[in-house]
Design a protein around this nucleic acid. Sequence first.
RNA 1: GGCCGAGUGGUGAAAUUGGCAUACACGCAACACUUAAAAUGUUGUGGGCGCAAGCUCGUGCGGGUUCAAGUCCCGCCUCGGCCACCA
Length: 822
Amino acid sequence: MSKYFPIDFEEKWSKQWVADGLFQHTFDAKDVTDENRKYLLYAFAYPSGSGLHVGHVEPLTALDILARYYRSIGKKVFFPVGWDAFGLPAENYAIKTGIPPVKTTKDAIDTFSRQIKRIGVSYDWGAEIATCHPGYYQWTQWLFLQLYKKKLAYKKSAPVNWCPSCQTVLANEQVVEGKCERCDTDVIQKKMEQWFFKITQYMDELISGLDSVDWPKATKQQQLNWIGKSEGAEIKFQISNSETQIPVFTTAHDTIYGATFLVVAPEHSLVSASKLTDVQEYLKSAQSKTEEERLVNKEKTGVFSGLYAIHPLTEREIPIWIADYVLAQYGTGAIMAVPGNDERDFQFAQKFDLPITYVAQKNDSSNQEFISYSKEIKENPKQFLLINSGEFDGQDFEAGRENIMKKLDDMSVGKREITYKLRDWLISRQRYWGAPIPIVYDPEGNAHMVKEEHLPWMLPTDVDFKPTGESPLKLSKEFNERVEKLYGKGWTPEYDTMDTFVDSSWYYLRFTDPRNTDEFARTEHMKKWMPVDFYMIGPEHIVLHLLYSRFFTKFLRDEGYLSVDEPFAKMRHQGMILGPDHRKMSKSKGNVINPDDVITEYGADTLRMYEMFMGPIDADKPWSVESVQGQYRFLKRVWSLFGSRVIPTSVEGSLDPSTSLRTGSARDDNEALTQLLNKTIKKVGDDIEALKFNTAIAALMEFLNEVDDNLSLDDAKKFLKILSPFAPFMTEEIWRSQLGGKESIHTVSWPMVDESALQKSTVTIPIQINGKVRGSINISVDDPQEQVIQKALTVQKVQQYITDNSYKKAIYVPGKILNFIV
RNA sequence: GGCCGAGUGGUGAAAUUGGCAUACACGCAACACUUAAAAUGUUGUGGGCGCAAGCUCGUGCGGGUUCAAGUCCCGCCUCGGCCACCA
């Protein structure tokens, strides 16, 4: 037992804990209150075939430390595990190999489970769920039906993002810089009948709810940006020689006299029927343009529509242009162009030689020039005056803004308006490996809900995975026959499946009642555990998951199932673990660290401690192959101190706390060491609660550095206990086989801090002369200021700087510092 | 372009929120043990000057507040993340 070789006992304990059911069946725990419960949650993991990554180990270990710590101080901890198991990678793999996703997914889950158990995560495995199980997706479908009943799930024809490679529609969120998030192919636009969830119903509450949650500021800001609330005005422009009006949305209605033309999006209803050939051509080219071409090549393009509008205030005719820098989906899909104050309009006007009217002037200048509205006027409206604006000339923009709005309102051509960037959530996917949308169509093509007694609406297995542009479900014989049998001749199923974000946006509710076959979760269970007390999830791809989860939570609350407004009370993000070269790990860069290799060489305790020691949990941190050694050495020293010594026991076989650990001799009254231990117990506990795991480990190391031969057995047990959340295997091994522990170290209580041992009677404080440290003295904490000063003046170094005890001023911060000004 | 972060030794990072800058590690150097290496242990390790006690400079840059600034205020520079033709 002298050599530290962790692998045997680590594997033994990881299996033993699960076999003993040490952390299980927490979801039906009794006597749970808002005060004593801790619902700890790690982001729903997608079980990829490549297995656990070192980037998973960091948040998992952090949560596991919290779980073990909170259990030790008497909290009811709920720490469940599940799998976001539907999704494209498994299906793509099936297309390549023919192996059904259900098989590869099961294998991947097995691998992940084994690896997570191997690093000792104290999950409640009894509550394990997976979104691809019929017992789970039955309730995903049930949720769809509840939304459908409330008209919050609806079908409409819409231009959608289409990935030609994945052969599927993508949500806006899955399009990254014009490319498919999954396969990097250029995304094109296509018009299709799709199912949507009406998340826009909750827009304002999705904004205001952010005030009540403890989330990183940046995350809240990202949510706000995505929702994109913008206050402005809608102004109607009459088309010449026509009854038709074009409404435009603007946030700068006060520049309206500078509107020298209008621009509409290529998809705008006004122009789709145009007979002009150059318009037709432009529409065609705009449509075929990929998102990427649009973004990379920001050169303005456009075409004159042949139509004119009447400016409501000047009553002059202005031309209407078509250009793809105006987005159909935002605002009204049409703008009034003010080239004198808007960068984009200015570029467009220059390129197509359109007139520019300057309507703003800096109040100390007489120049007529371009002034950016968003950058300058909006910031300091009082510094700019209106010009070329009829009756409003000479007013500053603060007054002008009000007065012009009033005029537009009086004329009934403009009104205040709010627009949002957030649009309804497109959930249809023309893919196999997802939850089927529970809708059937009668022979006339009308949609009907699948009856609840037919849930789970099973995903058929007789399919070919090769994508054809339509859902693979269409070719399932069983699926089509099932519908005719259940609903009648000529009835057909909805062939699309749901976006996997639907599955993963309510899983935290299912966790509270994971085996329920009658309900998606009992209200009292959700009431018991919700909201999640602490959620740890990566900073990438969270905007949508969080918006969707919040949307479902608010919907289910309105339906009476749930009593919380927000699902996640506190949230933090783990940083990224970078490669040793300080770059993001990737196979192509060859800088990937495999956790299995680290475990084989050093053991899981070392891996856990190293990842916790690397730095602050939310910072990106580079891996260092050498630095792992530091944690390994520390654990070896703990091992040789505790593990290899024979511990004397008293006659009853229980441990004699008055025995010295290393020598077996009577305990020396080592006051300093006991004091340090108490300080360490307090610091480790405080640091864990503050998520400062790196400094908690540093404190543990500092204590060990001070340990000599005189650590009492009682103190040894306390030290081992506060180390146990970080290194659960080795501490368990020593506890059970060397210290005679009958029960697991992970079920005993956190040591009490002896507050009296923390109170220092004497302290050493630095003495400064003019702010520079020149010496130090030992004092009693409650010595009066005068006494401290007198003592300081006796120090020889101090006397070198202060002659005849004369100084201008002395500042004494009790127990901390003394500063003389000379 | 918008919104968030971050800049401290050779490296990862600490600093009780205004009170001894560089804790804890890694690395490096010397020594001990060894035939030797590994492992382990001991000591040292921000720059400059000095044999030394010590002095002095020092937290991206420039200013300011304060007895006291890595920390607060003003103005810059650099790097990273997310979003982005959103009217």
